Amino acid sequence: MRPARALIDLHALRHNYQLARELSGARALAVVKADAYGHGAVRCAEALADQADGFAVACIEEALQLRNAGIRAPILLLEGFFEADELALIEQHELWCVVHSLWQLEVIERSAVRTPLTVWLKMDSGMHRVGLAPADYQAAYRRLLATGKVAKIVLMSHFARADELDCPRSEEQLAVFEQAREGLAAEVSLRNSPAVLGWPQLFTRQQAGDWVRPGIMLYGATPFEQAQDAAARLLPVMTLESKIIAVRELPAGEPVGYGARFVSERPTRVGVVAMGYADGYPRHAPTGTPMAVNGQLTRLIGRVSMDMLTVDLSDLPSAGLGSRVELWGKQVLASDVASCAETIPYQLFCNLRRVHLLYREG
């Protein structure tokens, strides 16, 4: 059997969730959209079921997967509904729903729902993706209440640049949000992972009923490009690993892989690893991207191909056929691999495929 696999540490997942609660002092919806960022939504939700205040997914298909697996906790649809007929399923499965557009509000007004909904009313405070304009926010709030079809409204927005610790945009967005919602007595949800980790000074006046939405931090990866104290407390959840399936001894001056992107400058011992871009490892990761073989750090050399990549074993005389290779995990951080490949850990995790997930408790 092909040795590529991803080990998912459920103890680390629970640790990271508790850290989100500790740092925020708020209730936390564990974001498990996109199959829990490639970690397996059902297994991750099951691991958090006895401690999570609820879960958040992108769409109703993801929510129904959790409900069908027996997850009874609240589940929020972060993009709300896409078609009016989804409201029947939202009511049937007791889902919470984001309303980010006037057309969604109008659908609720015309609907025949009998069980009042829990709505998270989203404001566009400056990200300019989805959300109601600040000028329309209070009127939308009053219209929802007037329908008689809404039991509870949570006020929410989303930060565009909270992962930039020296950027004032989050403070500006917060000011827009606070001004637009003045006088509305309701629970609030603003903070994503970077806001929980990096911006505690903005939320000294939070209410006891407020919510945070930890996503990438649940999976143990930092959202920041630079070192950050709170992010240093995260535990990596996924370890992507494989094995060396062949070894080559090359003299100086020999090219390795497609396009001769690497040419040996000295006699070089090359290990071939069963891992490629079809598994989700980034094709554009350059020579020098870190990886570990039998616990010793070394580097990727040459271009990543569909099913294989090559690693420098020149200074690892004990490594050879069958040696374990960590592509990212507890020793080689996903954020470091992402930085080398000019991407982000979110994409590394979400692109994972054709790799067996194995779950363990640490």
Results as ranks from 00 to 15, higher is better:
G198F: 08
V150F: 08
A341M: 11
P200V: 00
P290Y: 08
G183Y: 04
M127H: 01
H284N: 14
V263Q: 11
H15W: 13
N68S: 15
V256S: 06
L250Y: 04
S323V: 06
A151R: 15
L10N: 05
G131I: 03
L48W: 04
A338S: 10
A63G: 12
A88S: 07
L66I: 10
I108T: 00
R2K: 09
V154E: 00
K149E: 11
H11S: 11
F159Y: 13
K149S: 08
Q226G: 04
M123G: 05
R360E: 13
S170D: 12
R353Q: 13
A334R: 04
T239Y: 02
Y37M: 07
L327S: 02
R354S: 05
T115C: 11
I90N: 01
R261D: 11
L352C: 08
T343L: 13
E249F: 00
L144D: 06
V150L: 10
R261F: 05
L13V: 06
A334T: 02
A274F: 01
D35A: 13
A84F: 02
I153W: 08
V99W: 02
A185K: 10
A180E: 05
V98G: 05
I108C: 13
V176D: 01
L357D: 09
F262Q: 04
L165S: 02
T343W: 08
F349M: 15
L313E: 00
D136P: 04
L102E: 14
K330L: 00
Y37S: 04
L184G: 03
P286H: 14
V57D: 12
F81K: 03
W199M: 07
D307P: 03
G25I: 07
Q226A: 15
A56P: 05
Y346T: 09
E361S: 12
E249S: 08
L121M: 03
L348I: 07
A47E: 04
L78W: 11
A221K: 03
L197P: 08
R129S: 02
D315Q: 07
Y346F: 12
F203I: 00
Q228V: 10
V247H: 03
P3V: 05
R266M: 09
R67G: 06
P3I: 04
A36D: 10
V154N: 10
I301E: 03
G276P: 06
P345N: 08
R161W: 04
A160K: 07
L348P: 11
V311W: 00
L313D: 02
A278R: 14
A133S: 11
Y219L: 15
G280T: 07
A20I: 02
Q347E: 12
G209F: 12
A160T: 02
V237C: 13
R324C: 07
K330E: 14
R14A: 13
R142W: 05
P282M: 11
P134V: 00
D53Q: 09
R191L: 13
L202D: 01
P74R: 15
M308N: 13
M308D: 10
G288S: 12
L144R: 06
A319G: 01
Y277K: 03
D35G: 07
V188F: 08
A195C: 14
V113T: 12
D279A: 13
M238N: 03
A252Y: 06
F224I: 03
R233K: 15
V119P: 00
L87I: 00
A151E: 15
V325E: 11
